[in-house]
Amino acid sequence: MEFSITDPFLWETVIQGLLFGGVLALLSLGLNIIFGVIDVVWICYAELIMIGMYAIYFLYADYGVPLPLAFIAGILTVALLGAALHHFIIRPILHTEPINQLLVTGGVLFFLQGFATLVFSVEFRNLGVSFGSFAAGDMFFPISRMLAFAVSLVAVVVLWLFLKRTFLGTAIRAISQDREIMPLMGVSPQKIYLVTSALGGGLAGLGACLLVLLYDIHPAIGLTFGPITFMVCVLGGLGNMIGGFIAAFIFAEFIALGGFYAEVEWGYVMAFVFFIVMMFIRPQGIMGSKS
């Protein structure tokens, strides 16, 4: 294919990539905060999103709950799941080897995936809500993607304000900086971990609200979004939300442009290879500080 800077399709692809970057950034937000504060990788993070998507789907499509209410219920469900995951599964092994915490959530991944297959079947389900698309010259952009992009921008600003301006947010940041000293200052790490897990779960739920508008729901959807979400977090720098944002856009452009010039798999291959190479060059992430 010829390269032309004035090609409207190229520009459409670049902007689509930007919009997809917004979705990825939102998806990685919750994982990032858990990663940064508790230093645990929830391998099952994308499966929590899947459960949220099913919750929203069934409330809306089967029980006729209005969409905004279904969204709130979805967010709360996943927040509760996140807190339960921490309380019942992560907490008992928090003091063993760190890799065990990653592996135990892998068990949860299989559990949730098996559960979804068993209860909801492998059928692809679509919410069937469409917002139409927005035309700019020859370029078309789905409104739902633009909405996802806007929501993720708002979410990151709100989260940033929460972490900087509230007492709880300050305590969360303090714990992530020094988990030995903070208990001496009267902050209970266990309580903060639980709140952070619920917050991370809630953000996964928010991700579910947007994904449910954009994609079909099926039990293996977590495997599509899981790996890329971890890589966005790590590439951005552990617990660094601005870095995570930038990383999300880099990955999204790789995938979009790869899909434009070749096939979408090549975009993913390039994004993952880029990730591996970056890990060697800057293991602390693009925005991470050397520690």
Binding site: P92, I93, G107, V108, L109, F111, G114, L118, V119
Partner: peptide, 22 residues
Amino acid sequence: DVYGLDVMVYGAMLVLFIIYMP
């Protein structure tokens, strides 16, 4: 006809293994 049950039991077992029988 029952898909997913094996994966589900397997996942639950893994969680229990890692916590109680590492």
